[in-house]
Design a protein around this nucleic acid. Structure first.
Lengths: 121, 121
DNA sequence: TTTATAATTCATGTATCGTTGAATTATGGA
DNA sequence: TCCATAATTCAACGATACATGAATTATAAA
């Protein structure tokens, strides 16, 4: 991932409405949600939401597919992990002990990061 | 971490110059760098850099201390991990298998996340 | 005290972003 | 075909963010 791509993704998330939308999709899981359903859940007008989804989509953070009259949006989990990986890259250059706690917090937040041993922190 | 704090942090990082500055500090380690040294390394004018560092500082992503005529800036590793954790929270609600790859990438990026077994991915 | 260095603050002009109402496109059902 | 629903696009106005040059504060050395 390049710097400009990371900036685009971070910019997309650096907005209250868009961050709420993104997290709603992240929590919704891989099946995603119709735009109208997102609009109702986060209480954002359809046209405003459409602009927000366009920004997230342009940043590669969500994908979409049509289903009848609805358009279903889903979080792009892989892209999200690339962005987070970019922020962490070389984080402990020269002093590995610094970012060990970071890895621990991330393992805890990613509820399925059970591949790491809790005691190893 | 609250939504508004996350937005503030993401906004601070959603800028090419500031992101370069932040990563430079992340890679520099806990000892940090003097503002002037950062200015030289990322090739940004002192006054512009000062504004960037102020934004990062306000977002809690860097800390500073005076040393003689210099002011030393350091990355706030804990804050960074809080932000990343916020983005990941509840990411696999209902389908844990989805975010397993995310945890794997993060463990790889955080070079010291060696507590997880590579084969466990 | 005077001078030089390090960094910040301030004012300003420009550019970009974000929301909204109205109009438009696309699909499904009567 | 005609109508209703779902979502997007467009134009426009207001607000916010950015970079820069000049001035200011803080520290150290002569």
């Amino acid at each position: 991932m390049e710097l400009s791509q990371a900036v685009t993704a971070l910019s997309a998330l650096a907005h209250e409405g868009r961050l709420r939308v993104f997290r709603e999709l992240v929590q919704a899981g891989p099946d995603g949600l119709a735009a109208g359903e997102v609009s109702r859940r986060v209480d954002i007008q359809p046209n405003t939401l459409s602009a927000s989804l366009a920004v997230l989509s342009h940043a590669g953070l969500v994908t979409s597919r049509r289903d009848g009259r609805s358009i279903i949006y889903s979080a792009a989990y892989e892209r999200m992990s690339q962005v987070l990986g970019f922020l962490l890259r070389d984080c402990c250059n020269g002093s590995p002990e610094i970012c060990a706690p970071i890895a621990a917090i991330l393992n805890a937040a990613a509820c399925c990061g059970g591949s790491s041993s809790p005691t190893g922190v």
